[in-house]
């Protein structure tokens, strides 16, 4: 058994590059999903019925599709519609679009729970459009939604493992390569698990920082 872990250790550069790719994938798609979520949220709450219904359909639809299936569709399905993306682009797009739906729903809930008056005070004191959003609306919203957004980021990290099926060289893919090359499944996968765990601990640390800031303001 110790010997197996020794083999994994000798392949550590492969594992670490997998971890690096998983981190890049997760960070990029988390940021992008959050930004798209911010665009979708006002649409979800729009007074125009066609817009609200369309976005609501997308959000609910995404949340009912298994991610693995969605990744298959993007990578293997879209080419038959004439859209061929490489595995990195497909993986990032799938992870981002899928999680944007969750982010939109998270932000909508937090937004709806924000008291109206401080925002109105912002308007009365001369804040408008972008400065109102950036200075007055956004900070309390992020403080309130922070823990749930953090949860979703952990979900993104774990979902990224599915992208091994489209041959994206992320952490799970690296672990699988090591195990098939040397036949050390337990050591290879357990090592990957611990690396995923480490990644999630970093996110947790971020969440608890946001949480402390929010608690001071409650």
């Amino acid at each position: 058994m110790i010997h197996d872990f020794g083999i994994v250790w000798s392949e550590r550069s492969l594992l670490l590059s997998g971890l690096g790719n998983t981190t890049i994938l997760s960070v990029l798609s988390a940021v992008a999903a959050l930004l798209i979520g911010f665009i979708l949220t006002p649409a979800l709450m729009s007074k125009k019925p066609w817009l609200a219904t369309a976005v609501r359909g997308f959000v609910d639809g995404m949340r009912c599709v298994p991610f693995l299936l969605f990744a298959y569709i993007v990578y293997y399905g879209l080419p038959s519609l004439g859209l061929r993306l490489d595995n990195w682009t497909s993986g990032l797009a799938a992870l981002t679009i899928y999680n944007a739906a969750y982010m939109a729903e998270i932000l909508r809930g937090a937004w709806a729970a924000q008291p109206r008056e401080p925002i109105e005070a912002g308007v009365a004191f001369g804040f408008s459009s972008l400065s109102l959003f950036r200075r007055i609306v956004l900070p309390p919203l992020l403080l309130a939604a922070g823990p749930v957004i953090g949860n979703q980021m952990i979900q993104i990290v774990k979902d990224s493992a599915f992208l091994t099926i489209i041959a994206l060289p992320e952490l799970t893919h690296a672990a699988a390569s090591i195990q098939s090359r040397h036949y050390v499944p337990f050591a290879a996968f357990i090592s990957a698990v611990f690396l995923y765990w480490g990644l999630c601990l970093v996110i947790e640390a971020g969440v608890s920082t946001v949480d402390r800031m929010a608690a001071a303001r409650r």
Partner: peptide, 8 residues
Amino acid sequence: QHFALWPH
């Protein structure tokens, strides 16, 4: 009426 201070 309800102060409307910025909580953050």
